[in-house]
């Protein structure tokens, strides 16, 4: 992206003024475009946005998230999705359409503390985000290590077209499930790979703002290889 201009900004800072389109984390004040978060501003063509470096996860429809079961009622589960809101998983999503509140016991499928991979099915201002686990790659996580990082650093962990995550997976042999909410599940056959993958993820979290991070991670993984 040659015609992208980047800058470090804090809330209230004027990024630019003129006929630009405001996107995420910016507001328009007359002609001026103002950042609303601590992060990196990007001017790309006619759009301006700020990539936030901090803050909670904001649910978006179709995002893949790693969620933890908090509790259940007779009709639904409540899941912690590391956001301002709790995720809502209806029982009919798990048991199917013939779910009956008396016959089926929710505890038999998901218990408090269980981790699941879920997708945000719906999210708007008026209700808590609706989750679904009825898809092939979704559902309960049976094994693996949970790693928590800031949700704003997830794009960095994935890298351009998935380069970063591929690098880590190839070097360690681990299978990594990334939730957009900043929760990541790492599973690996051997303990060494697991530790290395976890370390690499934490390295991305700490050094997210540094250029050429993929190469740094690669050299870290290789140096510890022997």
């Amino acid at each position: 992206m040659e015609n992208t201009k980047r800058k470090y900004v804090i809330p209230g800072e004027v990024i630019t003024s003129g006929p630009y389109r405001p996107e995420q984390n910016v507001i328009l004040d007359g002609e001026r475009i103002i950042a609303t978060a601590v992060g990196i501003s990007e001017i790309y063509d006619d759009t301006v946005r700020v990539i936030s470096l901090t803050g909670k996860y904001i649910p978006k429809i179709n995002d893949l998230v790693v969620a933890k079961v908090l509790s259940h009622s007779s009709l639904s589960w409540e899941l912690d999705i590391n956001s301002s809101y709790v995720g809502f998983l209806p029982a009919s999503d798990v048991f199917g359409r013939d779910f009956s509140a008396h016959a089926d016991e929710l505890n038999s499928k998901l218990k408090k503390g269980d981790l699941v991979v879920a997708r945000i099915a719906n999210s708007d201002r008026s209700r808590d985000p609706l989750l679904t686990i009825s898809d092939r790659e979704l559902g309960k996580i049976e094994s693996g290590e949970l790693v928590k990082i800031s949700p704003s650093k997830i794009p960095r962990l994935i890298g351009k077209r998935g380069t970063m995550i591929q690098t880590i997976e190839m070097a360690t042999g681990a299978v990594i499930t990334i939730g957009q909410n900043g929760w990541i599940v790492v599973s690996c056959e051997n303990n060494d790979g697991l530790l290395k993958a976890t370390k690499a993820i934490q390295m991305v979290e700490e050094q997210a703002h540094i250029a050429n991070l993929t190469d740094r991670v690669k050299s870290m993984l290789e140096s510890k290889g022997e």
Binding site: I10, P11, G12, I34, V38
Partner: peptide, 11 residues
């Protein structure tokens, strides 16, 4: 507040 990532119009 800025450190918590809460959107703000200005400091």
């Amino acid at each position: 507040l800025a450190d918590a990532g809460i959107p703000m119009r200005d400091m």
